[in-house]
Design a protein around this nucleic acid. Structure first.
Length: 598
RNA sequence: UGCCCGAUGGUGUAAUGGUAGCACGAACGACUCUGACUCGUUCUGUCUAGGUUCGAGUCCUAGUCGGGCAGCCA
């Protein structure tokens, strides 16, 4: 039992098949410590799918008093860039902040594991440390020396050989899923020759693709990944992190399991497409005869929310073709986009945890995500009055220049809600949607001759409409029933509708960006071309009228604009004196879906 | 025509041989100075066929359907 489970105030720890396995291993004391890892390749931005993996790995570390290493799986110098390690580190730290920071495994800056000992743990077996000025994330590329030494050990054991087949020939020799492959003609080279050739590969004697280091397993295996998969390839390009020391680079299947081992990882969690690789993961570790306990790989299904596209390739296309403004566009499911949009990390965590961990490829209704966001924000966001699409309303019985001070509640969900003053004046703005000259059935809002309450102020009666020459509405003239204000004799008078408003003379302007889903179909990825199902109205920009207290808003603030939704300042485009708000999400709206509504 | 994995309401997930439950969603209703929140009611499910068993969502067999595997990507 973890401390968390003993704390009645903590939410019940989720359980799933992986956590069950981990719990069993903890009970058996199979590992000295539970160590997981989150191993992105720094070749793109993190998205909500990664959030599931992050929360699973850090969640387990957290529940078991272990650690989760952030490790960059950077074994392919052609694709990786420093820019991505920075964004990924930022995103991870944001997502786990206040929840699992204490589990984040970094390593001492510059630390590398020592060269292999043939049957023992490396001398500097890496123990994670807390993030700080003298620490940094883990990098698979820091293990290149060690990995290279292990490769030599594999050659000595007769389990790896240098192959001269071209990439095309290698493919042909591999056979097909239903056809066995053929042994490479270079498969039976002597250990001495393999050692010599591998040394010369490493020294840069051969061009890219001329030779490779291959495992010697079984070219007839029904598992394609066991048909002598490559361990090393030649690439004469520098590495963003390892520099220009190398021209041979290890492949994922070889590097990953050993990186896990070197870091003392106990449970290596990945997605379902790696199931066929598991046998290879084990083969490498066992072929080296490394001391137990060895890390093991477990696979789970990726997250696939409706109305969103998750693959890096597809998101890249949206960025390149300028459908969105960048990787951090608030409409994108990237962590940087979601953060910019105002989604709280806690809501994201709640969502990715609530979908569970299974081996079934499921599709998750985006409504589950939206529900998690609303639930979080409903509890924490300060309420404010804002009018997105204003129409002028004149309260004819309030003299110009007079201010009626009203009291508004900041958050009715608080145990002891605080209040703030808001100014009611002769001229106010109301939402154009809140007035209908010809109302649909069951319309509770303002209509000619009707009554409605101005939230926190008073009930008003609609007396008269003023239109311009073209017939367009210019202003609505009403009478304020001032004795229906809070504290006044008729405060308890009931009307069916309550609408939001702001004083026309005491409000501020702001740009407000209204986001909607990017696609019009639930599974854009299943479409022949997702560009054809783009939602043309995924972004609408309006100049809104806000209550003046919003002038002091900061990027960290989360607001509910009453009856509209949750909003926060755009961290990128807002500046002092220039407010730009993003709509994080609308309020749930059962009215707009009402049948019979015009 | 090979191998591996999977299948529980519209969606996601739980039940570890013993009452199919929870959440999202939807519908209706109550409440309401947010058509929000909250509360109440309702809705829909074990892929098929055999077998084992007192008893099967769970175990076995076969089938159906879906996913994955032939990068010198991760």
């Amino acid at each position: 039992m973890s401390a968390e489970q003993n704390d009645p105030a903590a939410p019940a720890a989720p359980s799933d098949f992986i956590r069950d396995i981990v719990a069993q291993h903890v009970a058996e004391r199979r590992y000295p410590q539970i160590v997981t890892r989150f191993p992105p390749e720094p070749n793109g931005y993190l998205h909500i799918g990664h959030a599931k993996s992050i929360c699973l790995n850090f969640g387990i570390a957290r529940e078991q008093g272990g650690v989760c290493n952030l490790r960059f799986d950077d074994t392919n110098p052609a694709k990786e860039e420093i820019e991505y390690v920075e964004s990924i580190t930022t995103d991870v730290r944001w997502l786990i902040a206040g929840w699992a920071d204490h589990c984040l495994g970094f390593k001492p800056k510059g630390a590398h594991p020592a060269a292999v000992t043939s049957n023992g743990r490396p001398d500097s077996y890496l123990a994670p440390v807390a993030p700080g000025p003298d620490s940094e994330p883990f990098f698979a590329s820091d293990y290149f020396d060690t990995l290279h030494a292990y490769a030599i050990e594999l050659i000595k054991r007769g389990k790896a050989y240098v192959c001269d087949l071209t990439p095309k020939e290698t493919e042909d020799y591999r056979g097909a899923p239903d056809k066995p492959g053929k042994d490479s003609p270079f498969r039976n080279r002597s250990v001495a020759e393999n050692l010599d050739l591998f040394q010369r590969m490493t020294a840069g004697e051969f061009p890219d693709g001329a030779r490779s280091l291959r495992s010697k397993i079984d070219m007839a295996s029904p598992n394609m990944w066991l048909r002598d998969p490559l361990l090393y390839r030649i690439r004469h390009i520098p590495h963003y992190h390892a520099g220009d020391k190398w021209c041979v680079y290890p492949l994922y299947d070889y590097a990953h399991c050993l990186s896990d081992y070197l870091e003392g990882v106990s449970h290596s969690l990945c997605s379902l497409e790696f199931v066929p690789h598991r046998a290879l993961y084990d083969w490498v570790l066992e072929s080296l005869d490394l001391p137990r306990p060895l890390p093991h790989q477990y696979e789970f299904a990726k997250l696939a929310p409706t109305y969103t596209l998750l693959s890096k390739r597809n998101i890249l296309r949206l960025v390149q073709e300028k459908v969105v403004t960048g990787w951090d566009d608030p409409r994108l499911p990237t962590l940087s986009g979601l953060r910019r949009r105002g989604i709280p990390a806690s809501a994201l965590r709640k969502f990715v945890t609530s979908v569970g961990v299974t081996t079934f490829n499921s599709v998750t209704d985006i409504a589950v995500f939206e529900h998690a966001v609303r639930e979080e924000l409903n509890a924490s966001a300060a309420r404010r009055l804002a009018v997105l699409k204003p129409v002028k309303l004149v309260l004819t019985n309030i003299p110009a220049g007079e201010t009626v001070v009203c009291t508004a509640t900041n958050n009715p969900q608080d145990e002891n809600p605080t209040t703030r003053p808001v100014a009611l004046t002769r001229e106010v703005f109301i939402e154009s949607e809140d007035f209908a000259e010809v109302p649909p059935p069951k319309y509770f809002r303002l209509k000619p001759g009707g009554e409605v309450r101005l939230k926190y102020a008073c009930i008003i009666t609609c007396d008269e409409l003023v239109k311009d020459a073209s017939g367009a509405l210019v202003e609505i003239r009403c009478t304020a029933q001032l004795d229906t204000r809070t504290g006044q004799p008729n405060a308890d008078k009931k009307v069916k509708g309550t609408i939001h408003w702001v004083s026309a003379s005491q409000c501020i302007d702001a740009e407000v960006r209204l986001y909607d889903r990017l696609f019009t179909v639930p599974e854009p990825g299943a479409e022949e071309d997702f560009m054809k199902v783009l939602n043309a109205k995924s972004l609408e920009v309006v100049t809104a009228k806000l209550e003046s207290s919003l002038a002091g808003a900061t990027v960290a603030d989360r607001f509910q604009f009453e009856r509209l939704g949750y909003f926060s300042l755009d961290p990128k485009d807002s500046a002092p004196g220039k407010l730009v708000f993003n709509r994080t999400i609308t309020l749930k709206d059962t009215w707009s879906k009402a049948p019979g509504k015009a």
